[in-house]
Design a protein around this nucleic acid. Sequence first.
DNA 1: ACCTGAACACCGTTCAAGT
DNA 2: ACCTGAACACCGTTCAAGT
Lengths: 169, 169
Amino acid sequence: VTDRQREIVAAARAIIETDGVEALTMSRLGAAVGMRAPSLYKHFPDKASVEAALAAQALEDLAQAFARADDASFAGLARAYRAWAHAHPRLHRFVNARPLPRDRLPAGLEQRTAAPLIAAAGGDRDLARAAWAAIAGLVDLELNGRLPPDADVDAAYAAAVRALTLASD
Amino acid sequence: VTDRQREIVAAARAIIETDGVEALTMSRLGAAVGMRAPSLYKHFPDKASVEAALAAQALEDLAQAFARADDASFAGLARAYRAWAHAHPRLHRFVNARPLPRDRLPAGLEQRTAAPLIAAAGGDRDLARAAWAAIAGLVDLELNGRLPPDADVDAAYAAAVRALTLASD
DNA sequence: ACCTGAACACCGTTCAAGT
DNA sequence: ACCTGAACACCGTTCAAGT
């Protein structure tokens, strides 16, 4: 991983966070790091590789947000995930709305990200997956504006956390 | 809604279901209904309108799958949703992975789709939203290949259903 | 009213050429 | 080794012209 590659991925992240996924073009990305689009291909084989590198970075970021959660219960982890997603809504959508190129991600990254949830589930991996789905699903509904305008979003999170907690006892 | 519009939406659906979202181009869509791409603009103002019409149709389809579920518990609804998503994986991704154009969808459609879940939740709308998130989230993880290869997917669904059921009593 | 070919401003990507 | 301009095959969309 060269400095130039890191610089390019950082620029890609900035573009997505400020203007959304559709604003990430090779031409704009090149301009952001001071070169023309074709030159990017000297550093990455294609656009998908840049995206995979960025997805890995975002997942890493999320894993740290999980690890730094003030409390490691379902409630605390849901709060941490939700806070991260609200801080980086376009990045969250970018990472979540596409089939992840698993083979291009660092090994063990997803496991590491999920570890705190497995702990909160008392080691029950199935419940941990259900919890991941519920929390990510709520964030998705919220961020994509798919909850009715009058929905009490906090209460929906609370209901999910309550159900998960009941199941973990 | 003209016959030609219905025909175009049906063709768009067929293209997505067989070859995925990225295969839906105006040129290919035109060819599927026997005209050139520019002619499509006599029937729809733009590509986004075709997509909105298709999203509405898919949601309608899903609502019916819910309504036809053999049993109206969380378990039965989860089974129905999962079966529909497996039968139309690319359509599910198409509908789920984008911010829905709510203002272009028929009024009440989403409410109607969600109604069986609210009933299963004993009228608790917050729990119903948590349930929707959990089920849609699991389908998403499954369809996007984001569960570890050794994950017991059935058990993850069962864990979610159990948690939701515990919370509804 | 409906469909066409030609054109426009964009994409991602390749490649020969420059330093 | 790194960057460039020119080119290619695509996009979605507009528009004047045909029937």
